[in-house]
Amino acid sequence: MTARFAPGDPVRVRPGAKPGHVRTPDYLKGKAGEVERVLGAFPNPEDLAYGLSGKPERVLYKVGFSQRSLWPDYEGPAEEQLYADVFEHWLEPGGEV
């Protein structure tokens, strides 16, 4: 497993829609976050959903996002985070979070 990103790396979730089964929720599309943890490599669910092998496996990351960057009216302190599990092909290198 070769992970492109490491814990602490700034990343951005790719914007845009992909038809069919995806595991990247819309509310994170285009949002900047930071890699919290590399979770391992898993068969790609976007292929598994259609009876394919899911190979090659894709690296999955736990990515932290500032809640206020997701929801402008967020109730809670500025340092609160939401974490979601995002596959590598949905991530690109990010600038400042």
Partner: peptide
Amino acid sequence: AVHDSTAD
């Protein structure tokens, strides 16, 4: 801290 379990 909210954890959205979106994958595996």
